[in-house]
Amino acid sequence: MKRLQQIAGNIESAVNTILGNNLVHWIKADATPVTNMDIAIQAAIIRIIREHYPNDNIISEEEGGYHISAGEQYSWVIDPIDGTANFIEQKKEFGISVGLMEDNRFVEALLVFPALQEKYYAAAGAGIVLNGQPFRPAPPDMSQIAKEVILCSKTMHSLTPFFSTEGYNTTCYRCATYSLLMLLKGRAVMYHTINTRLYDVGPMSFIVSEAGIKSFDSNRRALAFSVSEDVIPFFLSTVYEQLPEKIYEIMMMPTV
């Protein structure tokens, strides 16, 4: 049994217990929302990891979540609740994200979407498991999704006019993991964000990569992750085999 697979049940149990508590939320110093459940879920996942793999690196979103030693082989990447604003508003677009990297390469990931009652697990080269059963994505129906583009809140206002002139529809879910899930389910053709973090996009982009959905940087190269707290300036994931030239031109335009 693989490392994350071994503790996935413990993580899911802890998450389900915590989500049954009363919700308290506030605004952090960076003006983003956080809840008592973000903090509790992060603490619970870190505790489970420490019990089984005490020397591994840990990178997570909330305060107190960084434990990085350059010489360690394995690194855990945690977003206790991605889409916290949606969670506070009782919307469905949020998820709990845990990934495992070996050196600078993702090898396992677990994504739990409580409002959808769906949990996805993937290990490198082993495909995707949905709720304990093999998940085999159907080929995307391009006639239905070819004009659906998901943007982040930082680019929605500035990029929508450009996409509109090219005949695309845009939407924003305020949740990277849910946005990538829409690609996996064949409901959108691409997801683009800027100035994101490893814990926001890393684990779920690994899962969609197991379905053949690729992620790129601003130079059109396959996105190379690293064990770091650094900002990822450009992220694009798409079902297109080759993204049209015009789309990259639009993506690279300055945002306001």
Rank of each mutant, 00 (worst) to 15 (best):
A85H: 01
K91S: 10
I59D: 01
V149R: 09
R136S: 13
E93F: 03
N55M: 02
G132R: 09
A126P: 08
A126W: 07
N86T: 01
E148D: 12
A115F: 06
E118S: 10
L100S: 00
R105F: 11
W76H: 07
S69D: 10
E102Q: 11
K147E: 11
I96W: 05
A126L: 14
Y66S: 14
A124Y: 15
I59W: 01
G71N: 14
G65P: 03
A122G: 13
G65I: 05
F113T: 01
L110Y: 04
A85Y: 00
G64T: 10
S75E: 08
N131A: 12
I78Y: 00
I128R: 04
F135P: 04
E118N: 14
S75H: 10
N131Q: 13
P54R: 03
E63N: 12
A109K: 09
I150K: 02
A109W: 06
A122R: 04
A109F: 03
K119I: 11
Q73N: 14
F94K: 01
E61R: 00
S143G: 14
S75F: 03
I68R: 13
Q117H: 14
V77I: 15
G132V: 03
F106K: 07
L100G: 02
K92E: 15
Q144V: 12
G95N: 02
A138S: 14
I88Q: 07
G132W: 13
P139H: 12
E89P: 07
N104W: 12
E72K: 09
E93H: 07
P140A: 11
Q90E: 09
E61L: 00
L151Q: 08
E108V: 03
Q90V: 11
E102C: 08
Q73L: 15
P80Y: 02
I78R: 00
G127T: 09
K154H: 15
E62D: 08
P140D: 01
S69Y: 14
E61A: 05
V149F: 05
V112Y: 13
G125Q: 10
D141V: 06
F106Y: 15
